Amino acid sequence: MSDRAVSASVKNVTDRTSNPFGLRPPFDRTGPDERTAAFGYGDANADFHVIGDHPGAHGGKRTGVPFTETEAGLAVQDVFRDAGFVSGPRRRPDLENLYWNYVHMCCLPNGHEPTEAEYDELERYFDAELRAINAHILLPVGDRATDHVLREYTTQRARLELDMADLHAREIRGRGFMVVPIRNPLEWEEGDRETIVATIESILESDYRQTKGVATRIG
């Protein structure tokens, strides 16, 4: 599928929770009875967009829902439960003002990691979905997602070390977005969970908006 076709397929379809834009991945390495992908999931008009790595890392190979099943995925889910965005069952929760997806949506056989070529092949699909959601706050989880978001959607990557302990819960201005990285939950140290919950709650309590293409907070 060409970049133009990807963009044309992205429409603001708000009555679907899973894969609201009808994206179709360009390859399938799963078995006949396995899910092809963990598609984007949640509120297509959300202000908050959480971005993970791939289903093997952050969950969804069985449920088809990002941030389910795995220890890391459920830890992220529970942060947003505490912040009031998530309710309902953990395998298929209800999201309000929140959208979840992955840099690499396709499911892979157990033990396999995406190749660089596969990440590259899916980049235009991820980008099309991110721009269709057009959230104010991007929250990438882990090294891969954070590196991608900082490189592609801010001008800050060259001056920032990819040190997730340092970047965790920081508010970084991007090109039309505010970026708030989240350290991989499997690497959380004492206080990391409380810090990201507090940061999200602080953003919610402020007036966040976009001014001249840059996400800002007032108050």
Rank of each mutant, 00 (worst) to 15 (best):
H168K: 13
E161P: 09
D147I: 07
L130F: 06
L150P: 04
A72H: 14
E34F: 03
F48E: 03
S87E: 11
S202W: 01
R209S: 15
E201A: 09
D33N: 15
P25G: 05
A128Q: 07
P181G: 10
F85R: 06
L108H: 04
C106Q: 01
G31I: 04
R24L: 08
L95D: 07
L130S: 12
E152H: 09
I196L: 01
Y125T: 14
N19P: 07
L122P: 00
V76G: 07
E118P: 01
A198K: 04
Q210F: 09
V79E: 12
N134Q: 14
E69M: 02
F21L: 03
D127W: 03
V141L: 06
V179Q: 06
L98A: 12
G142K: 10
R81A: 09
F80N: 14
P25K: 01
P66E: 00
A5S: 11
A132K: 15
G73T: 09
L167E: 12
R91T: 11
E189H: 13
A8C: 05
G31Y: 00
G56L: 12
G52L: 03
H168A: 14
L162V: 12
V86E: 01
V50P: 03
E171P: 00
S202G: 05
A128F: 09
D120L: 08
G84L: 06
V10M: 14
M105W: 10
W188M: 07
